[in-house]
Amino acid sequence: MKQLVVSTPPHLKTSRTTKHIMIDVCVALLPAAIMGVVLFGLNALYVVLLSVASAVLAEYIYALIANKVWKNVSYFGSFWKQFDFTSVVTGLLLAMVIPASVPLYYPVLGSIFAIVVVKMLFGGTGKNVVNPAIAGRIFLFISFAAMTAYPIAKDFGLISVIPPVENDVTTGATPLTGILAGSTVKFTQGMLLNWLFGFGMGGCIGEVCKIGLLLGYVYLVVRKVIKFWQPLLYIAVCGLMTVALNGFDFTYFLPSILTGGLLLGAIFMATDYVTSPKSDLGNVIYYVALGLITAGLRQATGIEVVSFAIMLMNLVVPLIDRFVPCVPFGTKREKKAKEAKA
């Protein structure tokens, strides 16, 4: 008999590790990414590939420098062994929130900033304070004006013959900007379908095809990566807040949630484990606050602010975690008994 392993219980562990969860997130992002490439053409594909590749490469080079093993060629083996796919997720997410028409060095810059500055310098996986992809987007957004020039997606015209937005520029505002600026968009059923598939919509690569995002949402819920109510809570609160801010005009509800980056942000970015609260109660606070801030800031600024709202709430998460109390099983009964005695 060989030497036995001794350890603390439990001696059984689930086979699902961090790596599996991250691969699941990548898979969930694929439908929206593929639709992005279909709708925006080859440039979108280059952006996605460059973003992912530079994110992984940035992590590898950082690891080489941080571990002082840059002369050691065989280090790649051990890097790959502990590679947990978080940087692939970051790169993919970042590409989803970049317009397809940007110069190709944008995604590279954004990925390097996201991985090196936001993630690795704070201590790597699990230690980052804000979502790296969001920080990367904001970094690009406030640096380059081209980040706000959204190309219009191809309109395959299969669903509807009505042009969704009545303007004649090829690049410019997303439909959301139009709504926020007060243009009265006549809402029709055909438009809803166009919005869902992203045909003829302006926007970033991953955010236009809502069907793709919803497919990803279903996949994540089925694989138990996220809880089903988390994005729904955010989206519902944001939609209702927009309605309330516009004098309870319910025609704003669907446009406010089906345009812009709300779905992408709610499903993939706000739900990031590291930068969202740990407890259920904390999560309720987090998503409600996110919804309120997003709707409020959208109304006040007239630009798409989902990423700013998420980054803001990311910074508040440690406070929420500190505030949420731990209530052990059976405590309630004791309280009730005390009240009954009193």
Partner: peptide, 11 residues
Amino acid sequence: VEQPTACLSCG
């Protein structure tokens, strides 16, 4: 049996 990695705060 595997080496522990960083906590993700997944809850």
